[in-house]
Design a protein around this nucleic acid. Structure first.
Lengths: 223, 223
DNA sequence: ACCTGAACACCGTTCAAGT
DNA sequence: ACCTGAACACCGTTCAAGT
């Protein structure tokens, strides 16, 4: 993927001097407006035209600051994923990972569109900071070198799948009812699923944590 | 004495003669054409107009058989995810799960669009068969009841995240080069990531298996 | 029951032009 | 350097109508 976080034409950061008139378009204003619009209206309603209107500019003005719509997504996505490590990081590699991952998940659930976007356009600097942190913690925990990358990717995969599923499947009442109906006939066709009431279980937070602990246990067992 | 001039236009359920003659639209034909088009041209180029053209019909004819474009996706997705358990299923719960999950992944990688679609539109009958199988295996393995659902979802999440990432991030050379460039500056900003060359590691199959084993180990430890 | 074209209400983006 | 409207090449789907 092209580095869409870089402006298409050279653009100097807002120079000091005169107080910035809040009318002028900047990448920062575009990113902020995009985030607001994505949060409020969802990913499908985030159109370039709507974004321009929210910013009080013509549609095509955006394209001076931004290569295309994907670049807007990248901008919004990256600025939402920032993470700063907490101060008191003692040698507890497992706790540190757990903290970062929990924060990662809740950040994405606060901006549901980010879960849809992240697995499509990887590699923003802020998400790399999280992966770096993961890498450091694993080595601190003395996970053998040959397992470090696999461990990072496994956590990535897990977080990605969990947030995506949570976002698309969880909150809708419509889905809830469909699941109910399905479960009625489920008993005969899917007896084991029916017994555990998998589709009615709505303890998302608990399930997420349990699964993460399966993973960390398996990783920890390699030491 | 049959009317020899009459065109073989009779609509028989199972025509013995000319398969080329069934021009009529069915959900099955629509699903098959959609799968072919998705495989060949990718998800973004699967338009209702193109689909209709491939089927030799008008665009709006599709809407008699199908509610909308999403229904076409659901149809294609479900028919691709079928799974039949292998015959020789001995008491090896771990091996059975591993087999099903590996098949699941390779099926989705054969139809990359399915990885994009599945986490958005859950609950097709064929994918439920896979989840049911998972459920049965876990109980067979005597995983405690309170962990069964979490175990199922954790495997779901893992497979979902892994295939999605593989599909969107993996195959592109463009991405490969971007990762290279990024890694160059990475050494100073992300030392730990740089050391393990995470973004250059292309042993996707190995990483997937390792991660799955972390998970199964963690689950197995609950017994 | 099944199929159709015209038309509507949108998209993202190119382009030539303005300041 | 920054912004703009008009226009292009598309979309999915509604509708009224055909057989």
């Amino acid at each position: 993927m092209a580095d869409a976080t870089r402006p298409p034409r050279g653009r100097k950061p807002h120079s000091s001097g005169h107080p910035s008139d809040d009318q002028s378009l900047t990448r920062e204003r575009i990113a902020a407006a995009a985030i607001g619009m994505l949060d409020a209206k969802g990913i499908d309603n985030m159109t370039m035209r709507a974004l321009a209107e929210a910013l009080g500019s013509g549609v095509m003005s955006l394209y001076w600051h931004v290569a295309n719509k994907e670049a807007v997504f990248d901008l919004a996505l990256d600025s939402v994923l920032a993470y700063r490590e907490p101060e008191g990081r003692g040698g507890d590699w497992r706790g540190d990972i757990l903290h970062m991952v929990m924060d990662w998940r809740s950040t994405m659930l606060r901006h549901p569109w980010s879960a849809l976007l992240l697995p499509r356009r990887v590699l923003g600097p802020n998400i790399l900071v999280r992966l770096e942190h993961l890498s450091v913690c694993l080595r601190q925990g003395e996970v053998p070198e040959e397992y470090v990358n696999a461990a990072i990717w496994s956590i990535w995969n897990y977080v990605m799948g969990a947030t995506l599923t949570r976002v698309t499947f969880g909150p809708s009442d419509e889905d809830r009812i469909a699941a109910q109906d399905r479960l009625a006939e489920l008993g005969s066709v899917y007896p084991s699923l029916g017994r555990s009431r998998l589709l009615l279980d709505d303890d998302w937070d608990g399930a997420f944590r349990k699964g993460l602990e399966f993973l960390l246990d398996g990783i920890g067992a390699r030491r």
